[in-house]
Design a protein around this nucleic acid. Structure first.
Lengths: 217, 217
DNA sequence: GCAGGGATACTAGCGGCGCTAGAATTTTGT
DNA sequence: ACAAAATTCTAGCGCCGCTAGTATCCCTGC
């Protein structure tokens, strides 16, 4: 049965090829430029081949989004798990979220902006997506009232800054300050009893992260 | 020159007819269903007539959005001006924003979600849009540090809740609680020294407003 | 070694999209 | 009444997502 295995492996490789082509094309020219014809040309197959892997264009985008959920969950989980050692988990998790959105804008768009058939906030929600949300809840710290709603609002604020900035509806400059403001608003100790330079630190952190992680693959 | 006036008036009427048709069709079936062919059919003219009024479909949507900016600015300004008498301006302004987004979801989409050529945060920003933002700044109250950035984050949070809820990425239930949370986060006096039942009041307010203002016009 | 048969990929085409050139029609001014 | 000007329409371009039907390839069993 080795021959069947090889075939399946080649199929899986082509599946990945399609996903990579879709993401690459979207990153280069936006999702509007990702057409079935151009995708077919990129992978050196004819259009109908795409439909043997995916139900349609929306399905391809959903697959890209799913990969995004995995990466986002991984990043957030890593920051949220650092309860010991790092004093400001909330800021790090928020920074990681913004960092992800900035480094993979079109993936973020497929995940959270464009219409998708992926179910949110239901039983069939992808586990990775749930993990990402739980990281937000955890980042807010213990003993907070209405933790789920609070996390939803935090997520909304993060998402809002991302999409408004990406669509140039709020200026790109000031992203660091907005992070400062946002973290202060949602931290459990509001009156800034903490150390002052904390803000400056994170500004650098976000900037560097965004600049370093802009590669396409 | 009365005949030229009549012609111009008829042109203006047809312009309005197109806008109304576009908004109505979008409200009934979403922006994807708003095609130049269907619009032409709705107004009983052929397609190219649309292009004598607008540069293209995007221009029509921008016009719908512009009308939306006017209405939103009017609503927010009204709530923000109530400094005297109303103790919680912030809550009322936020509620008005959410109310608008819920009552005119597709207009909101054209304004703040879909790609647009309208310039934000620049010199050529529509005055009404600027007014709306100023209302947000005012609602936050005086003597706050970084008022503009703070307003940007508040707007982001409001926008985030709207779009995540509209795209069913956070559950529709809980909108009132999220408003409560959000207002508490951004109010200048954080420790809830105010009266308790305030939240319940506003919940009713928002719900009634959303239900009453759902007409297609 | 080689024909049959199933899997695989292709060509071609459908209806619909935004948009526009050029023809046909209506309206205007003389 | 008639030519000119403004207006509206017909027809079509290149593109889209998607699919039916055909051709090709490769594995299987003799």
């Amino acid at each position: 049965m080795s021959i069947a295995e090889r075939k399946e492996r080649q199929r899986a490789e082509r599946y990945e090829l399609i996903l990579a082509a879709a993401r690459g094309l979207a990153e280069a020219e936006g999702w509007d430029a990702v057409t079935t014809r151009r995708l077919a040309e990129l992978i050196n197959y004819s259009q109908p081949v795409l439909y043997s892997h995916f139900k349609g264009k929306a399905d391809i985008m959903a697959a890209v989004a799913t990969r995004g959920f995995e990466e986002l969950a991984r990043r957030l989980r890593m920051e949220a798990a650092n309860v010991t050692g790092a004093p400001d988990v909330l800021r790090n998790v928020c920074a990681a979220y913004l960092d992800f959105a900035r480094s993979r804008p079109v993936v973020y768009e497929a995940m959270f902006v464009l219409p998708t058939k992926i179910k949110f906030a239901s039983e069939e929600t992808p586990p990775t997506l749930r993990v990402a949300f739980e990281a937000l809840v955890a980042a807010l710290g213990p003993d907070r009232e209405e933790p789920v709603f609070l996390a939803e609002v935090l997520w909304s604020a993060l998402h809002g800054t991302v999409v408004l900035a990406q669509s140039e509806r709020i200026p790109a400059t000031g992203a660091e300050v907005r992070l400062d403001v946002l973290v202060r608003m949602f931290s459990s100790d509001r009156g800034d009893g903490g150390d002052g330079p904390r803000a400056g630190q994170s500004q650098i952190r976000v900037q560097v992260g965004a600049a370093a992680d802009n590669s396409m693959e």
